[in-house]
Simulated scan of single mutants.
Amino acid sequence: MKNFIIAAIAFILIASLTVIKRHWITIQLISTGKPPPLLDVTEEGEDVSWHDDYYIVQVLDQDTFAIGEPRYQQQNFNYLIAGTERAILFDAGSGFRNILPVAESLTDRPITFIPSHLHYDHIGNGVSFDHVALIDLPHLRARTKEEKLQLTWQEHLGSAEGYDTPRLPIHQWIQPNDVIDLGGRELLVLYTPGHTDDSISLADQAAGLIFSGDFIYPGPLFGFLPNSNLGDYLQGAETLLTVTRSDSRIFGAHRLGPPGVPVQTLTDLHDLRKALFAIHSGDMPGEGIYPITYVINPTLQLLAEPGWLQNWDPIYPELQPN
């Protein structure tokens, strides 16, 4: 009996530690601790040009450029969005190659770097930007000292590819629902959490262009990471729906494969919102053990934690759309 009790206590302790450390364990299992080998050069179509042997550029309009990394395993896409006076670089990849010369070759206007969120594959680790702007959220602002934010492992996850957790310089804070005037062009800043609690999207409402970061893109959406939250995901979906038209194009930060830039539509957003409600109510079955895979539509899946671990309480409910 004594041995049984000891074994039961040990099992409970191991199980509890596994739950507590589940995110760290998962990252270790799916990563190697170093950048992945480069993929082969791919055929990208007539609308895409190779900037060098790593980056591609796709012109979305005369002042909007998708800068892709098709040889990087995660198939990242970053966006240069320019007006007559200034430009925004929305995401910068992992920094495996310096994206700044690519962006500077596409515009002569001063560039502000804005990350869609703080994961390592979006902040351009080691790339030095003259001007960095970040979403103004209490949990980020409170930790900033001398205009630098020390990221946490949970925010950065860079150990997956051997990147140290950096201190990010902050030159400007942008508020949710701020309008960024680029000169003859305005971008609406949207707080779209879910994938992370610091995620944003940018919307050019006049042109019907939305840049969604990792919130939505073709393929599996990661809603099981350390600062993911399904309640936040629902809030983010409802926020994006307030500015998305039937003819809007939603440009995400990753794709499944070539050719060209990843694009989603209003229908995909509606499908995501509908799926989140169904998951919350228990009406949508998932597949697998961890993470659970929920099939949203033929191009979208949501990877989430099991129901008993899912969090449906938004971190900033006051930022939900009216």
Rank of each mutant, 00 (worst) to 15 (best):
P220D: 09
V127Q: 11
L187W: 04
F211E: 01
F113R: 10
A92T: 07
T112V: 12
D164H: 13
I200R: 01
P138C: 11
D121M: 07
T293H: 13
G83S: 03
M284V: 02
V261G: 06
D271A: 04
T18V: 12
T107L: 15
I250P: 08
E318H: 11
V19A: 10
L190D: 00
L234Q: 00
I56Q: 07
T267N: 06
G158L: 05
P37M: 04
L151N: 02
L202C: 00
W312E: 05
N227M: 05
G124N: 11
S201M: 06
E238Y: 11
V127N: 15
T242S: 11
I180K: 07
R249F: 11
A207P: 02
W312S: 07
I12E: 07
D198M: 00
I9C: 08
L309C: 10
H280E: 13
I279V: 14
D63C: 08
L106I: 09
L221V: 08
I81A: 06
I315G: 12
S201P: 01
A207V: 03
L241F: 10
A253N: 00
I170N: 03
H270F: 07
I180Y: 07
F113Q: 03
G257V: 02
H171I: 01
E287A: 10
Y294D: 01
R109D: 14
G95W: 13
A304E: 01
Q235I: 07
I56P: 11
R249D: 05
L269Y: 05
A203P: 01
